[in-house]
Computed example of a mutant assay.
Amino acid sequence: MSKIKILFVTPSFQSFVKNDINILQEYFKVTINHYPWQNKSLAPYYFILQFFSILKKILSVKYIVVSFGGYWSFWPSVLGKIFSKKVFIILHGTDCASIPEINYGSLRLPILKFICGISYRSAHCLLPVSESLAKTKLDFLPSLKAKNQGFQYHFPNLTTPYITINNGFSPDDWPWGEEINRLPHSFLAVFSNEQYILKGGDLIYKIAAELPESTFFIAGMSKPENMEECPKNLKFLGRLSQQELSHWYRKVTFYFQLSLFEGFGCALCEAMLSGCIPIGSNVNNIPQIIAKNGEILNVKCEKELVDLIKKINLRKDLDDLSMKSRTHILKNYSIMLRKNKLLELLSN
């Protein structure tokens, strides 16, 4: 029996996108539609190319799955509706937000918001990776003006149904090993140079000097060129391979997810799966991921974070918390849970 054909559209290939492709390829015949949309000067060219590419293939596929809302989701959604093909758009975060103050969110750009609006209305179903992407309020940064976020807020008349399917993670990719002795009073955060403010890099920089007995590591970025003085206990690890990152997850004791907005929190789940004890901001679904296995910072405040770190450093149950962090992710955010929900949706 031949496999059902699916067209998978994506602008990029992050690990969570690759996971979805691998899941679908196991049960469906998947054709991937990809252009380097990050090259903005060529986006109009790719927009035209994609139209003819989708038009050529659309009659031969049963479903169209789009990862991220954006320019690339317009033709799949519109043509899918015209040719009565079910289109599912997986929403990851930036496609549900508009935060001009920190230069974040696709929906802050009028043309892109217009494109996303048409895509979301034309789709058969939206698949946010977090319930908070439908609607949430950001109170973590008191001065933030754009507090209301989510596709239901930005598109109040949207009637397209949605089903939340959380991202999933494999314990094989992020092992928990007792063979590595964790560094005491050590903290890790993962983000790129472009995400320095969004992910709380400025807050980590400020507290490092106040906690000389602790060591802070930032993976994914190099030291900013404009950072003249860097505390000796703040280390920038640069870009790491998955194997290198896994090593650091198992080497440090705590993990920071101090985001101003967080579509899901993949690095947070990876770190917890590796046994890191999480400290996160009270934003989107971060509190749900952390649950009772770490600490939540309610407001972006240097003093409150320092007090919280001093408090958690004194806890006697850190080894227990480490194991509970891993267990919590295995139970609630496993790759098998996402796989089963995606397959159930497409099978029906």
Results as ranks from 00 to 15, higher is better:
32 I>A: 12
315 R>K: 09
28 F>V: 02
51 F>Q: 10
166 N>H: 15
337 L>P: 00
265 G>F: 15
79 L>E: 13
37 W>I: 03
132 S>L: 00
12 S>A: 02
322 S>F: 11
256 F>E: 14
285 N>G: 07
24 L>E: 03
287 P>M: 06
13 F>V: 03
203 L>A: 04
156 P>N: 00
250 R>G: 14
172 D>T: 06
201 G>F: 02
272 M>Q: 15
316 K>W: 06
241 S>M: 00
149 Q>Y: 13
320 D>S: 11
296 I>V: 10
129 V>P: 14
213 E>F: 03
15 S>T: 02
81 K>T: 02
271 A>D: 01
215 T>H: 12
259 S>Y: 15
238 G>V: 04
83 F>V: 03
329 I>G: 11
123 A>F: 00
117 G>K: 09
264 F>D: 04
219 A>Q: 02
195 Q>V: 07
329 I>D: 07
26 E>L: 08
214 S>M: 05
114 F>G: 09
270 E>V: 12
110 P>K: 07
32 I>Q: 09
330 L>K: 09
256 F>C: 02
57 K>Q: 14
148 N>W: 05
275 G>C: 11
157 N>P: 03
47 F>P: 01
247 H>N: 08
28 F>W: 09
120 Y>A: 08
9 V>Y: 10
346 L>M: 11
45 Y>G: 14
110 P>S: 11
87 V>P: 00
74 F>N: 11
88 F>S: 04
189 A>F: 03
325 S>H: 10
348 N>T: 07
219 A>K: 03
140 F>R: 00
276 C>E: 08
43 A>C: 11
59 L>I: 02
170 S>G: 03
201 G>S: 01
120 Y>P: 12
262 E>L: 06
8 F>V: 05
30 V>Y: 14
255 Y>Q: 02
15 S>C: 07
201 G>M: 06
225 E>N: 05
312 I>Q: 06
300 K>H: 11
212 P>N: 03
207 I>G: 08
144 L>R: 01
194 E>L: 06
192 S>P: 11
55 L>Q: 10
284 N>P: 06
115 I>K: 01
221 M>C: 15
328 H>F: 15
312 I>E: 03
114 F>Q: 04
343 L>P: 09
277 I>Q: 14
147 K>W: 12
104 Y>N: 07
207 I>A: 05
263 G>T: 04
194 E>D: 13
11 P>A: 11
62 K>Q: 12
217 F>C: 07
18 K>E: 13
257 Q>V: 04
223 K>D: 08
107 L>H: 03
72 W>A: 12
200 G>H: 00
348 N>H: 13
181 N>A: 02
274 S>G: 06
343 L>W: 08
336 M>S: 15
268 L>W: 15
137 K>M: 06
291 A>D: 06
74 F>G: 05
221 M>F: 07
52 F>V: 08
97 A>T: 07
340 N>P: 09
243 Q>G: 09
229 E>S: 02
76 P>L: 01
37 W>A: 04
10 T>L: 13
119 S>K: 01
243 Q>K: 12
31 T>C: 05
307 D>L: 09
341 K>T: 04
210 E>V: 00
138 L>E: 02
190 V>L: 14
97 A>K: 00
125 C>Q: 15
100 P>E: 05
280 G>R: 04
99 I>A: 13
321 L>F: 15
345 L>I: 13
219 A>Y: 00
